[in-house]
Design a binder for these strands. Structure first.
Lengths: 226, 226
DNA sequence: TCTTCTATTAAGGCACTGTTAAAGTTAGTT
DNA sequence: AACTAACTTTAACAGTGCCTTAATAGAAGA
């Protein structure tokens, strides 16, 4: 789900936006002023930014200018007061993708967000790797020593969880909860079975093994060579 | 210089827009009603369309719908009365790029036009290709091994989305959301059906296949030879 | 040696995908 | 306004492969 940064100093409005966007399934965070906004924007990547123009400290237009300096692509929607035509115009010319005039109806905001997210739709892929084993979460492709390995959905999900928790010992219940889902009913023996399937595909055909059994506890995936 | 079609039934307003846009160096033409608009749109290509929603005969939203049916790219800016939030929202969801609320200041219109024309010129890759498969977004022509392949609109849109996300595994709901629209109600089984149609046209007649099923997840289009 | 934990296997059930045809829509034409 | 053709959607069934279960064999620790 896309994440959206809300830059807005009116606490109440910010909260309303956050709730509504939350209902729609977006991840959100609030920045109360221009400096906060810049910090958050530098800290992580956002799919879209809602930016109020009237902010304490650093004005929204200034934030816009600095962001666009580095990043020309992230959609930015300005929030402006009705009568500040001049701000709107310079905002658009500074590279904002859109603006919405306060007071607005939430439906309008949602529709505009949809438009701009629709225009994006190209994301980089997330690549995990441990030793000579690597997995691409987007394409769901797994390779070891460069050779492609075919996994079923459950096998893949299990491997991803193991790789994300490299070197940790993971208990069966823990694996069940994260890979099968917290509401799974059934024996933890499935884990054993799937560990075997994984081993057959990513360990057995090769010289060294990544998956290790920790007796009485669970399993762990680790690169011995450390 | 870019040419702009003004669809507006209020003669005076239409004339003002034409003059102002003329001063800025744009080529313009006026259509007084929905039918005129469609005729003009069919007759030649426009860099941008200003479209009033309230029109005699055919409403602006209807015009929008019919245009977007064939042409997803030409920027369309709606002109609406201030209180018709609902129209704005459905307009945006029908594929309008923007709207401006009447009464507006001309500077605002010019700024928005600049934004959208600017966005256009940044889209050079109208020709997509994966292996020996290629698709032209403008002409909607698709070829494989140089042979032309005839696709229906829905098939084409699906193929484009697959090609734009080459190698990624796309889930059924994701495909529904982007190809059928986020507000589509109905079974995700349509996706299966259309994947089959596509396969019949672009894979089955040839030696290798581009469309792959990822069981439990979705579909992906990829060029195996990597 | 005995107990407890883990590995292995194979078969049945079931969810997912493939396929088809018919019904429903839409756009264009007479 | 009705007709036609093309496109889209629905729905039902078939087939396949994945997941789970359960039973047995094997290893590790007391």
């Amino acid at each position: 789900m896309p994440n959206i940064l809300i830059v807005e100093d009116e606490q109440k409005l910010a909260r309303v936006l956050q709730l509504e966007l939350g209902y729609e399934g977006y991840q959100t965070m609030i920045a109360n002023n221009g400096n906060d906004a810049l910090v958050n924007i530098k800290a992580q990547s956002w799919d879209l930014i809602l930016l109020d123009i009237l902010l304490p400290q650093l004005s929204g237009l200034e934030v816009l200018r600095r962001v666009r300096n580095k990043d020309k692509t992230t959609p930015i929607i300005l929030l402006t007061a009705r009568d500040e035509v001049h701000d709107k115009v310079s905002g658009l010319d500074l590279g904002a993708n859109d603006y919405i005039t306060k007071p607005f109806q939430i439906e309008e905001v949602l529709a505009r967000i949809r438009v701009h997210l629709r225009n994006m739709s190209v994301q980089p892929s997330e690549q995990l790797s441990v030793g000579d084993l690597s997995a691409n979460i987007q394409t769901r492709e797994v390779t070891r020593e460069g050779q492609s390995v075919e996994l079923t959905p459950r096998e893949f999900d299990l491997l991803i969880y193991l790789m994300k928790n490299e070197n940790q010992v993971l208990q069966r219940d823990q694996l069940i909860e994260h890979v099968w889902g917290y509401d799974y009913v059934g024996d933890t023996n499935v884990v054993d079975v799937y560990i075997r399937y994984l081993r057959q595909k990513i360990d057995t055909p090769f010289a060294t093994s990544y998956i290790h059994t920790v007796r009485g506890v669970g399993y762990s995936l680790k690169d011995k060579k450390l």
